[in-house]
Design a binder for these strands. Structure first.
Lengths: 213, 213
DNA sequence: GGCGCAAGTCAACAAATGTTTACATCATGT
DNA sequence: ACATGATGTAAACATTTGTTGACTTGCGCC
């Protein structure tokens, strides 16, 4: 496929010609980031097992061996991706006033269309076959559920508290299902609905499950 | 692991000893069914790519080669599973009076705990890397959404019809998210909630998104 | 009973995958 | 300028995976 003639290597000079920023040809941190971005896209859209390290390396335009160098292994790379996804989800469901949660979720779910990066949410539910990654994912989801429930007035010791937590987790489930049906399995018209299109239904959904305190 | 001593084959006599029905040792249709059941479980819990044909064959207690014989290929086996899952989902969202849709969904989502089979729903969203299977899945989901919307009074030519269809698909998304968070990623307390625990929140959710006609 | 075919077994194959090893090349400090 | 460590490359590796072909074994029918 990409077999280079064995003489002098072709080198990738093409981009640098029109590139305004003559960035260094060798930059470890940039290479790391390229790999992370490519991996997030691949993992989110194809899942962990179906993604090969060569896919990721090709997307990023770097050599396959660098994945092992910078992230130890494929699993290490996946965990690094999960970390970023967790941060993003925490930001969405945590540090946001309760009234604006629908907007935040809509933005998160719709983020795929705006940013090129498919929602990190899909990353969260991809079965990985890796125990460590499963733990991370579960922890993130659990914490997100508790934050959402807390924003709706949940207190851990309160009687009937489990009901509220359960309903917060159902909201979370709906969010994740939305992300999946928009990216991994593009279901129309849901997949092409805009961020604004989603806010109203999401508000109705959240109001129904988590009545404001 | 399961290495048999190479002398006379051990043969699987263990089960037949206490088995009240001395069923034939060689039954093509039964073997097919064993493979289908094992495959549904594996595909639903681990995903398509992470599941190996040897896993399935071992679970079913049959030889690996029989997968190719009866289903042509791993993809063929997956499509066969998708067919069954599609039937089940159609049954849930279609031939049910609108008022009882929450119960039907709860039953479907909770089905994992009651029957040993993890909800066929999770099968529906597993990315497969196979174009044909993707089409099947998308078709099933689309049809389910339309049936649900129709049960809520949606008519294709009606103005503002897209909004209703969109909201039905959001209900579908919530359902799928629920199935995932209960099986693939067991999130507590959601994962251990009983069927009855789910009915009330689901009714609230559906009432909010699909007001009865 | 014994014959024929369906059902099942075993071993091997090629392709793909994650990882490593040895080597080449750039960047930087002196 | 040039030595040295960081960065990137290429090829090879040991496994695993899906699939196939030749072979064996049991079932049903004459």
């Amino acid at each position: 496929m990409t077999a280079q003639p064995p003489g002098r290597a072709t080198r990738k000079v093409a981009a640098t010609a029109t590139d305004p920023t003559p960035r260094r040809r060798r930059d470890a941190t940039e290479t790391r980031q390229l790999l992370l971005d490519a991996a997030r896209r691949r993992f989110a859209s194809d899942g962990y097992a179906a993604t090969t390290v060569r896919d990721i390396a090709d997307d990023a335009g770097v050599n396959v061996a660098l994945i092992s160098r910078y992230f130890t292994s494929k699993e290490g790379l996946f965990e690094a991706c999960l970390g970023a996804a967790g941060d993003e989800l925490r930001r969405t469901t945590g540090e946001v006033p309760f009234e604006r949660v629908p907007e935040a979720i809509a933005h998160q779910v719709a983020g795929f269309a705006t940013t090129g990066v498919p929602g990190q949410l899909t990353l969260l539910l991809r079965s990985s076959g890796d125990t460590r990654a499963d733990e991370i994912r579960l922890g993130v989801l659990h914490q997100s559920g508790e934050r959402l429930a807390a924003a709706a007035g949940w207190r851990p010791d309160e009687p009937d508290g489990d009901r509220l937590l359960l309903q917060a987790q159902i909201v979370l489930a709906a969010t994740i299902g939305l992300a999946v049906l928009r990216t991994s399995t593009p279901l129309q018209p849901l997949a092409s609905a805009t961020e604004q299109d989603l806010v109203a239904p999401l508000r109705a959904l959240i109001d129904a499950l988590l009545p404001p305190p």
